[in-house]
Each structure stands twice: as structure tokens, then as C-alpha cells.
């Protein structure tokens, strides 16, 4: 249950382009690490996207797909050169499939200190619909 910082979590996972469209931006693309948890009224998605802020995050809902994209501008200290690197800098992208129980118009997103928190409210229990059968 408790998953603490272990080595596998330290490394960012890079997306290797295979069947998805070729990118035109010359940066790397990473999969943000996320926590997904469910409460009584909502599903929460928390994603680590260091280097991105509210202006560089795009969240799109298309049918049942939720897409999180975050652009990260590589900020290089002026006049300094990179001499040792343990992490790569690049954009983030991750796709999720939503279930029908989510109210797609009520999704809220907040970003703070490089962490994006999404709240996906559940729709109230839909009333069972009875279809009347008419006799012809």
C-alpha cells in the first residue's frame, strides 16, 4: 500500500514513439506519474508535471478520452552548460479513458507547485428508464 520513493519511481518514464503521431516539437515526451483515487462523489487524478504551469497545460475531453498535455519550457540558466544530468526535460502527455459515470462538464483542474489535481465529479445515480412498449 505504501509506495515510497523507490528507485523505479525516481526515473521519469519516456514515451517512445511507435504508433502515435510524430511530434513536430523537438523535445522529449514523458508520461507523468499519477495517483488516481475515488471518493463518494468524485474521482481524483493527481499528476506530477514539474516545470508546467496553468498556461502550459491543456486538458481535453473528447468523448470518453481525457487527455492531459503539459508543455515544459527548458529553462537553462544563462551562460551555464549542463555538465551532469540525472533527469531529462520534456513535455508530458497521458491519456485516460473515462467511464460513463463522470460528469464531463463538471471537471475541475488546479495546478500548484508542479502538481496537477483533477476532480472528475460523478453523476448522480441515473434513474432506471423504463421504455413503454406500445402495441401496434
Amino acid at each position: 500500500m505504501t509506495k515510497e520513493f523507490g528507485n523505479p519511481e525516481v526515473e521519469k518514464q519516456e514515451i517512445v514513439e511507435q504508433d502515435q503521431a510524430e511530434r513536430t516539437r523537438e523535445t522529449r515526451l514523458y508520461i507523468p506519474r499519477v495517483d488516481i483515487y475515488e471518493t463518494k462523489d468524485a474521482i481524483h487524478v493527481v499528476a506530477d508535471i514539474p516545470g508546467a504551469d496553468q498556461d502550459s497545460i491543456d486538458i481535453t475531453v473528447d468523448k470518453n478520452t481525457l487527455l492531459i498535455e503539459a508543455r515544459v519550457e527548458a529553462e537553462r540558466p544563462v551562460d551555464y552548460s549542463l555538465t551532469y544530468a540525472e533527469y531529462g526535460i520534456g513535455d508530458f502527455r497521458r491519456k485516460f479513458t473515462l467511464s460513463n459515470e463522470i460528469d464531463q462538464n463538471g471537471i475541475e483542474a488546479v495546478v500548484k507547485n508542479g502538481v496537477l489535481s483533477l476532480t472528475l465529479p460523478k453523476v448522480g445515480p441515473s434513474e432506471a428508464q423504463k421504455i413503454a412498449v406500445k402495441s401496434a
Binding site: E4, F5, G6, N7, V10, E11, K12, D48, I49, P50, G51, R76, P77, D79, Y80, S81, L82, T83, Y84, A85, E86, Y87, K112, N113, G114, V115
Partner: peptide, 29 residues
């Protein structure tokens, strides 16, 4: 004490002889 010793990952930037800049990704702190 159970503290992780290789987090966060760092990048080191150097400028000639005058100094260094260390950056680390630490979201949500």
C-alpha cells in the same frame, strides 16, 4: 531512518570557474 537517498534526481549546470547551478524536480513540496 528510512529516508530515500537518491531522490530527487538532479541536473548540474556549470559556468566556467565561477560556480554551479543545481536543479531538481520536486513537484508538490
Amino acid at each position: 531512518f528510512g529516508a530515500i537517498l537518491d531522490f530527487p534526481a538532479i541536473n548540474v549546470w556549470t559556468k566556467g570557474d565561477t560556480g554551479q547551478v543545481i536543479t531538481a524536480e520536486l513537484p508538490g513540496i
